[in-house]
Structures are given as structure tokens and as C-alpha cells.
């Protein structure tokens, strides 16, 4: 019995130690289409933006960030793809593998059926990605990707 426990403990220790350096699977990636505007009484931003709302305000000069489309994808293999879309815009995200603490992504921003922008990125857990899109009226389209 003692030997069996020792044997199990050895394997558990080995597995834990080896797995600790591997890619984390099963994380969520939130992607959002946001229209930033300046209004007299701004509405609170989506919860996913709370910790970097100040940066967005300072960087883009708007006080309200309204969500017009979003998607949350749980990544298991790091090879998934998904779409976050609004009426006229859609953001296609194609995950192309996991890195040490994030994912390699290919992003395509569509305006209706036309590709406006394509980019390849390594999205890290501790570093959200914000893409400045086209001007919409008095506001600004922003694309956000956050590993949660």
C-alpha cells in the first residue's frame, strides 16, 4: 500500500512539474466591437473593459464605450476560430496555436463583406489588444480582444 502511494505521488509530482511549464488551455478570449463616443452622461463600459477603461479614455479621447457586438470563445486547442459581429461589422478571429501565455491569432475586420483590415498577432493574457477602426459619425469603432 505504501509503495503504491509512493508510486502515485511520484507520477503526480512529475506530471505537475512538467505541466507547469506548458501552455494553458481552456482560457476564454473575449472579442468586442465597441463604438466610442463623447456624451454628456456616459454609460458604464462592458465589464471586460473595466480594468483598462482609463487607458482607452486617455488614448482615444472618448468617455463612452458602447458594445455593438461581442463573442467569448473558450479555447481548448488554440486552433479555433470565431466571429464577433454587429450589423455592419464583423471581426473574424482565427486562432493558430497557443504560445507560452497566450495565443497566435489572425484577425480580419469586415465592413459588410469587405475586408478593411487584416492582422496577425500574439495575444497575451496580461495584455489586451485594441484596434482603432474607422470613424463612425462622431464616434470611433474600436476592436478589443482580451484573454480572460
Amino acid at each position: 500500500m505504501i509503495r503504491r502511494r509512493y508510486f502515485s505521488a511520484l507520477f503526480a509530482l512529475a506530471f505537475f512539474l512538467l505541466a507547469s511549464g506548458q501552455v494553458r488551455a481552456g482560457q476564454n478570449v473575449w472579442s468586442g466591437l465597441v463604438v466610442a463616443t463623447n456624451v454628456a452622461k456616459p454609460q458604464p463600459p462592458p465589464a471586460e473593459m473595466h480594468h483598462f477603461e482609463g487607458t482607452l479614455k486617455r488614448t482615444f479621447g472618448y468617455n463612452q464605450f458602447a458594445l455593438i457586438g461581442q463573442s467569448r470563445k473558450a479555447l481548448e486547442t488554440g486552433e479555433e476560430n470565431w466571429l464577433a459581429s454587429s450589423k455592419h461589422f464583423s471581426l473574424h478571429v482565427d486562432a493558430r496555436g497557443a504560445t507560452r501565455d497566450g495565443y497566435r491569432l489572425n484577425l480580419q475586420l469586415f465592413q459588410d463583406r469587405q475586408v478593411l483590415l487584416e492582422t496577425d498577432t500574439t495575444l497575451k493574457k496580461s495584455s489586451p489588444l485594441v484596434i482603432k477602426g474607422p470613424q463612425i459619425g462622431a464616434g470611433q469603432l474600436l476592436l478589443l480582444l482580451v484573454v480572460q
Binding site: 488614448t59 457586438g69 484596434i131 477602426g133 463612425i136 464616434g139
Partner: peptide
């Protein structure tokens, strides 16, 4: 560019065609 305080990476695209307000629809 990247912001120092909360490590936000910004891809800043200028020169895209401006669109009317109705493109902000959900």
C-alpha cells in the same frame, strides 16, 4: 504602441474612410 500602466497594445489605423452614424448599429 503599448501603454505602460496597464499593458494595452494598440493598433492604431489612420486613414480609413469615415462612415455615417447608422454603421454604429448593433
Amino acid at each position: 504602441f503599448q501603454t505602460k500602466d496597464d499593458k494595452v497594445t494598440v493598433l492604431w489605423v489612420d486613414g480609413l474612410k469615415s462612415l455615417p452614424t447608422d454603421y454604429a448599429a448593433k
